[in-house]
């Protein structure tokens, strides 16, 4: 067991270091701004007195490293300062939106994960048949389509032409859970389509890889029934790649969610990020980027740790 713990511990430590480096990048990237934040807020025509006053107020007269440490310390306690456009607390702006985004991603994941893994296994078992080829072409097309293309097609047919689901995923207080599911169905479906294609292809590749290994051949040769080959011989070794596939694709969901939220005007953190970028609201941009990057790293970590934990060789050391 000790081996596993050290491996997992090492991986967690590495993740933490990468997160730290990323926070450095996110913070000092803004320092690269031509001029500085105060200049960006007040514009080119600001008087030197106003600039100096604003700099003092925002703490810009202190050295960057001091400000970085203060920012990081606050960020750990989920306090990202206040917006430079509206003066509201960043945590208030993105707190609820973050929950909405998580809800949307979870909704998509709940549908996509089981369906695509089952489909991936089926396609892998039927490999080189006509179904496999059709599935290959179809999933490749879904991967190649930008999210907004799929989103607008769904809106055009499901919302405008057939009127089955609302086109705009606006949320309101006190909606029942079913209402919520109906409102967010189209954005979730868009995400499902994109992620499912990825996940199916990766599952297929992993399973085919596995079925080519000698011990599967051995099991077949000794006359084990096909289901037993899959369940007893292939599956225990397939967990690691499958967990990897799931975690990587959930990480992929994070990027996809930004475009989908904009298409469906969904009040999530992706939309907040896009708004903040076009308004150059740096504290919000920094906070959103940090949250997205942290989630991304966390999911990648989960993939690695999951792969370590489900590796039979590590669980049963000699």
């Amino acid at each position: 067991m000790g081996d596993i713990l050290t491996l997992v511990g090492k991986r967690l430590g590495l993740g933490l270091i990468i997160l730290l480096v990323i926070s450095l990048i996110i913070f000092f990237m803004v320092e690269l701004l031509p001029g500085d934040i105060a200049q960006a807020v007040l514009g080119q025509s600001a008087t030197p007195e106003n600039l100096a006053a604003l700099r003092r107020e925002m703490g810009l007269d202190q050295p960057a490293i001091v400000r970085y440490l203060a920012w990081l310390g606050d960020a750990v306690t989920l306090d990202f300062g206040s917006s430079i456009v509206t003066d509201a607390r960043v945590t208030e702006i993105i707190g609820e939106r973050f929950m909405n985004t998580l809800f949307l991603a979870a909704y998509a994941a709940v549908i996509a994960v089981p369906v695509s893994i089952i489909l991936g296994v089926i396609v892998a078992l039927l490999r080189n048949s006509i179904f496999d080829r059709v599935a290959n072409v179809v999933s490749l097309s879904f991967i190649s389509s930008p999210e907004f293309f799929l989103g607008y097609i769904l809106i055009l047919y499901f919302a405008v032409k057939w009127g089955m689901f609302p086109a705009i995923a606006s949320l309101s207080e006190g909606m029942s859970f079913l209402d919520l599911l109906e409102r967010t169905f189209l954005p979730a479906l868009t995400l499902v389509l994109v992620v499912m294609a990825h996940m199916m292809r990766m599952t297929r590749a992993a399973i085919i890889n596995l079925l080519a290994s000698p011990y599967i051949e051995m099991a077949r040769l000794k006359g084990a029934p096909p289901w037993k080959v899959i369940v007893k011989h292939a599956l225990p070794n397939a967990w690691a790649p499958i967990i990897n596939v799931v975690a990587l694709n959930l990480a992929y969901l994070i990027t996809g969610v930004v475009l989908v939220e904009v298409v469906f005007v969904y009040p999530g953190i992706g939309q907040a990020l896009v708004d903040a970028v076009s308004k150059r609201d740096f504290p919000v941009v920094q906070a959103c980027c940090l949250i997205f990057a942290a989630t991304f790293i966390l999911l990648n970590l989960a993939a690695d740790v999951g792969a370590i934990l489900t590796n039979p060789r590590l669980r049963h050391p000699k």
């Binding site: 990468i18 994070i254 930004v258 903040a276 991304f296």
Partner: peptide, 23 residues
């Protein structure tokens, strides 16, 4: 490793908020 551990769209948005766009 570091660059790849930031989602590409997010990283692009971060850089564009500083250098890019209409400004």
């Amino acid at each position: 490793d570091v660059i790849m551990s930031i989602p590409s769209l997010i990283f692009a948005l971060l850089m564009l908020s500083i250098f890019g766009g209409s400004l």
